[in-house]
Design a protein around this nucleic acid. Sequence first.
DNA 1: CTGGAAATAACATCTTTATGCGATAGGTAG
DNA 2: CTACCTATCGCATAAAGATGTTATTTCCAG
Lengths: 209, 209
Amino acid sequence: MMEIKVAIVEDNDGIRESLSILISGSAGFKCIAAFNNSESAIDRIPFLNADVILMDINLPGKSGIECTRVLKEKNSKLLIIMQTVYENSEMIFESLKAGASGYLLKRTPPAKLLEAIEEVYKGGSPMSSQIARMVVESFQSKPKGENNLPLLSDREEEILHHLSRGYRYKEIAEKLFISIDTVRSHVRNIYEKLHVRSRTEAVLKYYKK
Amino acid sequence: MMEIKVAIVEDNDGIRESLSILISGSAGFKCIAAFNNSESAIDRIPFLNADVILMDINLPGKSGIECTRVLKEKNSKLLIIMQTVYENSEMIFESLKAGASGYLLKRTPPAKLLEAIEEVYKGGSPMSSQIARMVVESFQSKPKGENNLPLLSDREEEILHHLSRGYRYKEIAEKLFISIDTVRSHVRNIYEKLHVRSRTEAVLKYYKK
DNA sequence: CTGGAAATAACATCTTTATGCGATAGGTAG
DNA sequence: CTACCTATCGCATAAAGATGTTATTTCCAG
């Protein structure tokens, strides 16, 4: 029977030891290496044959996110699960962008952790339900409280869309069969509603978080 | 003890009945309504007090995705879990954009389904590991094909980053302690490398679609 | 050692944007 | 009916951005 080979990057000695014991003590899993900092992990992991890497997000020196980015650059096939105590959405997205395949809270129970390792190995992306919610919300326009973005009229949205594509006023006017001054009017109204002073700001504010 | 009130939208009679029995037969859950099409669900659900809605993605007439969109427009607080037999990434993203909070495959075992309902109720976003992977991958730059974007120097990337934030040349110059003419130089070089003629185009091209 | 990026800077010129102040017409909610 | 919003258009001006040309310094690979 094939064992899933796991490498650990974790600076806390106690946690690292516990993880190592948990993994090697479970049927079907084996901890083949453990590092207490990013630098040594970056040096050695490319030459190991690890199936899954458990990466602490908070590491002294180079962070786990940076470590992930570097490792994925060297070998995009590496499967990395981030572990953190924080549910900070910025870190989650940075981790995902860096190439992490899963994202777990440190308080994940051992059984779930092993399950997650197996899921990553089989092509899944385990993440805690709370973390998944944040990821899901990033696909949906509204945050939580209220939609504090002013509502643009249909025409204004249309204009803004063209603005975001980089078209000039003149080009937009031609596309919509209106005069350039009308485009200016709409743009002015859009800026006022969004409280911005330039095209780039408007586009960012409307289509972003 | 509080029961989680579930509504079901599912056109297959057998599945709908099974779900209803499963839910109402489990401690802490109760099925308070079941619909076999989008239209009746849209009519009635806003007047129910359902905690979680199980929505089949494939419904005759108006699809489950459309139904989700309409329901969320009426009441953004509704919690909806999509159920599908397909792992089609387009449908997943459409569902999430429509406002779904979770996304499960129909072959999810009963215990997991109940767990998922509970997780959604508590603010999470359960999804199968395979589905999560697709979502995660959408955050990572596509390795498919090639990144044929010209390589910008570090300084140029820095300038472009500030451009994308909407800063003016003068502001960028101050931030980076260089002259406005140097900013102009960099911008010009960036435009040349990216083959664009304006700030918005450059930002769009570099940070992709 | 040498050629070539990369970063810096200046100056001129032209285009595009941003903004202030109006104005007219159609539609709708009160 | 009236007030308000939306869409339309005009003119004027100031600010910001795009572009052409040129030049110095540093650093690195060949």
